[in-house]
Design a protein around this nucleic acid. Structure first.
Lengths: 182, 182
DNA sequence: TTTGGCATGTAATCCGTTACATGATTAG
DNA sequence: CTAATCATGTAACGGATTACATGCCAAA
């Protein structure tokens, strides 16, 4: 039984399909590519790489540098198979946990200004997200125009933008409603 | 420093502002009220209730029934204060983790049909969510028309609906694009 | 009488973050 | 020379789920 989900190793395998990388670079790469909808910490990455190597799903290309070496990992054929199999399974629905909504739900029991400030923060975050995703999209279309993954990547950007737009509209409408009531 | 976030006890305190309940009823209540954006398991609830009681934030009204008793919890004044303080703090931004997007991002490396079936599932889930939230809204407006929390509750429903609509439109457009390309 | 819902709790385990420990290399 | 960045790893801890253990009561 053990690992039911095992998503960390799959992100690593996925990123290693783009190019071989060190654990450190994988961390950066997670942030830069799937950062709006996924995150991994070193505490997850290094043990996962060890396990992947033990299972023959990745291999170490170089091993040089300092005392503990710099290890460049590459995905193996077995690794591609494992990734393929995982991609065939439907995503396991995640437990929703939205602290903002929780606080709004119980908002009557908090201080009067808190609602407004949380909505403002939500609005600003949504705006920032829209801006960031717009840049991502522009950069993809410029620099990755020939990347074979492009259409998949744009799909994820697209959902991100739509959801951020929905949040923005919601926060603005809610703030307007507050103003009219006050 | 121990508990930085401590959200489980806060959900429980929040729900106990509505009415006193047992641990079992709290579990149902989480599902029925904040279910679209929050979830708690017994493994969290019972220990949390114990800790809340030790801290004087809740008290036990009744203690009867079976061998281990039926305990009806009520929020105390100290509990209301703790909830109030927590509601004053801005929500801690959560790490995004969306497995569907992860799978789409690496979609090229999976089986050809997987993308389509995941999008269909996303579309169907969004539709179901919209339906469920519509019912929640209708029921709130009917049965809780005088509830002092109503406007806050509707705010959370509203965001849920908008985000679900965004997901629905995204999944439909993506499916259409797929069909045109095939 | 047996199934399902009410009810409480613990134990094992996992997933994941943060902090710690260590050191090489590079740019200013 | 020194600060930042590259780089690898472990340890402690906390948050959360799942499974387990137990038993009452009511309805079919």
């Amino acid at each position: 039984m053990g690992n039911r989900t095992a998503r960390t190793p799959m992100v690593l395998l996925g990123l290693l399909t783009i190019e071989p990388m060190t654990g450190y670079e994988l961390r950066q790469s997670v942030e830069q590519t799937v950062g709006h909808f996924w995150r991994e910490s070193y505490g997850q990455i290094y043990p996962a790489l060890r396990a992947l190597r033990d299972d023959g799903l990745v291999e170490v290309l170089e091993d040089a540098g300092g005392p503990r070496g710099r290890k460049v990992y590459a995905i193996t054929e077995a690794g591609r198979d494992a990734l393929h199999d995982w991609l065939a399974e439907p995503p396991v629905p995640s437990v929703p946990r939205n602290e903002l909504l929780l606080k709004l739900f119980f908002g009557r029991h908090g201080p009067p200004g808190a609602l407004r400030s949380m909505l403002r923060q939500a609005r600003d975050r949504a705006l920032a997200e829209i801006g960031a995703l717009g840049e991502v999209r522009a950069q993809l279309e410029r620099q990755e125009a020939d990347a074979p993954d492009l259409s998949w990547w744009l799909l994820t950007v697209d959902l991100g933008e739509r959801v951020a737009q929905a949040r923005l509209a919601w926060a603005r409408d809610a703030l307007d409603a507050l103003r009219r009531n006050a």
